[in-house]
Structure formats: C-alpha cells, structure tokens
Computed example of a mutant assay.
Amino acid sequence: MTFEDLEPRPQGGEALRALSREDLDLYAVDELHERIAALEAEIARAKAAIEGKSSKRSAADALFNFR
C-alpha cells in the first residue's frame, strides 16, 4: 500500500471547476490555443465514453427485452 492509496479521491468535476476559475489573462495566445486543443481532445474523449455507454445500454436493453 502506498501513501497515494490513502489519499482521498478528488470529487468528480473538481478539475473542471478549477479550470473555469483560472485567470486566462496570464496565458499567451499560443498557450491558449494549446489549452483549447487539450479541451477539445477531452470533449472528444467524453463523447466517446458516452457513445460506448449508450451502445452497451442498447445492447443490454435488446438482450433483456422480453416482448
């Protein structure tokens, strides 16, 4: 067991809240473009997770539909 195992997990959405509170005036234009690219990649990852969960749900619904 490591010390990391003993630390509490961050609450869901905390990273997003922290991002929304950051002062964007501190970033250069190139850094803002990099930030946007990283956020767009995260959006794509979230959409893929939604799609995967939706397809699993549809498969489960089809399997257990007794009509």
Rank of each mutant, 00 (worst) to 15 (best):
Q11E: 13
R21M: 12
A41E: 13
E31C: 01
L16E: 11
D5W: 02
M1Q: 03
M1V: 03
S54D: 13
L6Y: 09
A60T: 08
I50D: 03
R17L: 09
A37V: 08
L26D: 12
L63H: 06
E34V: 00
E31G: 05
A59L: 15
F3H: 10
M1A: 11
I36R: 09
D30I: 04
H33E: 12
L6E: 10
K53S: 01
A59G: 12
A28F: 06
R57P: 01
E4Q: 13
H33G: 04
S54A: 09
T2F: 07
E14M: 08
A38L: 07
A46M: 07
E7Q: 15
K47H: 08
R67S: 11
E7L: 15
Q11K: 12
G13I: 04
Q11C: 00
A46C: 02
D5E: 11
A41V: 03
G13F: 01
K47S: 08
A41W: 02
A44K: 10
Y27L: 13
F64C: 09
F64Y: 14
V29D: 05
L39G: 07
E40L: 15
D30W: 02
M1I: 01
D23P: 04
K53N: 00
F3L: 15
S54Y: 00
F3S: 15
A44H: 02
G13E: 00
A48E: 04
R21H: 12
L39V: 14
A28N: 04
L19S: 06
R67N: 13
R17Y: 10
E22I: 03
P10S: 02
A37C: 03
L63W: 07
Y27M: 10
R67M: 05
E42M: 13
A62W: 09
D25L: 12
E34G: 06
D30G: 04
R45E: 06
E31S: 01
E31T: 01
R21C: 06
N65C: 09
F3Y: 14
L6P: 00
L16D: 09
G12P: 11
F3N: 15
F64N: 10
D25Q: 13
A18V: 13
A15I: 03
I50V: 06
I36K: 06
N65T: 09
E40T: 09
E42W: 05
S55Q: 12
I50E: 05
E51W: 00
L32R: 14
A15K: 08
K53Q: 05
L6N: 05
K56Q: 10
E22M: 08
A60I: 05
L24G: 05
I36N: 03
D61S: 03
K53T: 00
A62K: 14
L19K: 11
F66P: 00
R21V: 10
L26E: 10
M1C: 04
R45F: 06
F3T: 14
E14S: 09
R35L: 06
A46I: 10
M1E: 02
G13A: 01
P10L: 05
A49M: 04
A28R: 07
